[in-house]
């Protein structure tokens, strides 16, 4: 370790931050795109229905369309809030 390393900041370089943010974002946007057109609307409708009973956040609902063998599978993953937190 050279003397100059001492002065180096440990902060990650912004280009690296940009790359990581883009990789996450684009992965999500591609999933939204690859599904049928109704997927975003379906997600909203499901949110509305659940909100009648429980307060949930956008991030608590995960709608994904996948493929298992020859079947298309619509996977809904809804995280309900902790009862004690209500």
């Amino acid at each position: 370790m050279g003397i100059f390393d001492y002065f180096r900041t440990s902060k990650p370089k912004t280009a690296q931050v940009a790359k990581e943010r883009l990789q996450i974002l684009i992965k999500h946007e591609r999933i939204d795109r690859s599904g049928p057109d109704f997927l975003p609307q379906l997600r909203n409708d499901i949110m509305e229905v659940i909100r009648k009973y429980v307060q949930i956040d956008e991030k608590d609902v995960n709608v994904q369309l996948g493929r298992v063998n020859n079947y298309e599978v619509l996977e809904l993953n809804i995280t309900l809030p902790d009862r004690t937190a209500q």
Binding site: K13, T14, A15, Q16, A18, K19
Partner: peptide
């Protein structure tokens, strides 16, 4: 090179 711009490879 200074880490402020996305590289072509990225």
């Amino acid at each position: 090179a200074s880490g402020d711009m996305l590289a072509m490879e990225d």
